[in-house]
């Protein structure tokens, strides 16, 4: 357990923090969106890690060896299904956000958050 897998948990925490830093500190809209993508990636990596067991393989049941001892050789497939869904959703949000950013650039002529102040209270 300790070997290897801890690196992935550490990586997902690091990605999360880097992403959060970008969202909170960066002033460029595209960089903010990149930060959000990093956060999503971090959560996806975390989800994969939960179901992954070191040295085991994906539960594709055409493999004869795997069919004989499914629990000894296979990892939990549910988190992988969840991550596939989450990736698709993330792509949709990213595409939408980028098109909104394009529209903001058309109307405001800038991507800097500090210069876009039409609706501040």
């Amino acid at each position: 357990m300790i070997h290897g897998q801890i690196i992935f948990y550490g990586a997902s925490v690091a990605l999360f923090v880097i992403g959060l830093y970008a969202v909170l500190i960066k002033r460029n809209l595209i960089k903010i969106m990149l930060g959000l993508s990093l956060i999503e990636g971090a959560v996806n990596l975390f989800l994969i890690n939960i179901g992954y067991i070191w040295g085991k393989t994906a539960p594709i049941l055409s493999n004869k060896e795997l069919l004989a001892h499914p629990s000894a050789k296979a990892v939990d497939p549910v988190p992988q299904a969840l991550v596939l869904t989450a990736i698709v959703i993330g792509v949709a949000v990213l595409a939408l956000a980028l098109s909104v950013i394009m529209r903001i650039y058309e109307t405001h002529g800038t991507l800097n958050v500090d210069k876009i102040k039409e609706l501040r209270w």
Binding site: T107, H108, E118
Partner: peptide, 24 residues
């Protein structure tokens, strides 16, 4: 309009951050 896309962008940032937290 300018205000509309700006509001939408704020919504996207908070909304996708929020749903990522739910997923976590």
């Amino acid at each position: 309009t300018g205000g509309s896309v700006e509001g939408a962008f704020k919504y996207i940032v908070l909304g996708s951050l929020g749903s990522t937290l739910v997923l976590l």
